[in-house]
């Protein structure tokens, strides 16, 4: 190949690629026709993928941090290393984390999930542990004095009382994961980040509005569901206090 420069063989033929609607071409704020054309092919799959990314990440993150918090509650020595680990993970920019993971786990959903799970650990671990530790000493003494075993104290007293703190953690984790999951699009065309980043680059307003709006809506709905779930699980926390 002589230096890579290829002699042009005449100008290429540029075919008619078809035109967008006036609304699209003028890039108006919101083009319903574009949404109609792209809902099934672009937006809906992205939304479902996004929900999946978040649910899986938070579920795995919750199980891991919950287990770690139980261990740290029992053995204090475990707290510092796990906190340090999750804090370090938390501070790594997603792009940098992907740099580390791509050679190992490839350009895959796994890579994204590992990063997202990593970001949930710190908040979920801290909150669960704080929750377990927030149980008043007199309550623990009463439990012991009445003959609760250690396990019974944990499952019947400490964990139920840690639920509000755990939910506080979950709410932050879910909302921030919904936001963070857009970075999945740095690795694969997956989730709402894909149309959002794409539309931002093209300054294509309709797509920004729809995809961005769906992400915000998803965060609001998820948060409302969590609040409702917490209310249902902890009627005592919202019981009217005696004046």
């Amino acid at each position: 190949m002589s230096g890579g420069l290829l002699l042009a063989q005449g100008e290429p033929i540029i075919p008619d690629f078809g035109e967008g609607s006036d609304c699209v071409v003028e890039n108006r704020f919101f083009c319903p026709d574009w949404v109609r054309d792209n809902w099934a092919g672009v937006i809906q799959p992205a939304l479902l993928q996004h929900v999946k990314l978040v649910v899986i990440a938070v579920a795995i993150g919750f199980v891991l941090s919950f287990a770690a918090a139980l261990v740290a509650h029992r053995y204090r020595l475990v707290e510092a290393p796990f906190t340090a680990f999750s804090a370090v993970v938390y501070t790594i920019p997603s792009l940098a984390l992907f740099q580390l993971l791509v050679p190992v786990t490839g350009l895959t959903v796994t890579t994204v999930e590992i990063a997202l799970v990593g970001y949930t650990l710190l908040i979920l671990f801290r909150n669960t542990l704080e929750g377990l530790r927030s149980v008043p000493p007199d309550v623990l003494e009463a439990a012991r004095g009445m003959g609760y075993t250690r396990g019974q104290t944990l499952w019947r007293v400490e964990l139920p009382l840690a639920v509000p703190a755990m939910f506080a953690g979950l709410r932050v984790a879910v909302v921030s994961t919904i936001a963070l999951a857009t970075v999945a699009a740095l690795v694969i065309p997956y989730g709402l980040g894909y149309p959002i980043f794409l539309a931002l680059r093209e300054a294509f307003k309709t797509e920004i509005v729809v995809a961005g709006g769906l992400a915000v809506l998803m965060a609001l709905v998820a948060d409302a569901l969590l609040v409702a779930a917490q209310r249902a699980l902890t009627p005592w926390a919202s019981a009217r206090r005696l004046a």
Binding site: E141, A142, R144, G147
Partner: peptide, 23 residues
């Protein structure tokens, strides 16, 4: 048995120690 012993003795403390999440 430790737990049996405790379950057989009523225990009342100053701060009461009621379980906040139970009626």
């Amino acid at each position: 048995d430790l737990t049996e012993l405790r379950r057989g003795i009523g225990y009342v403390i100053q701060q009461v120690g009621l379980f906040p999440h139970m009626t």
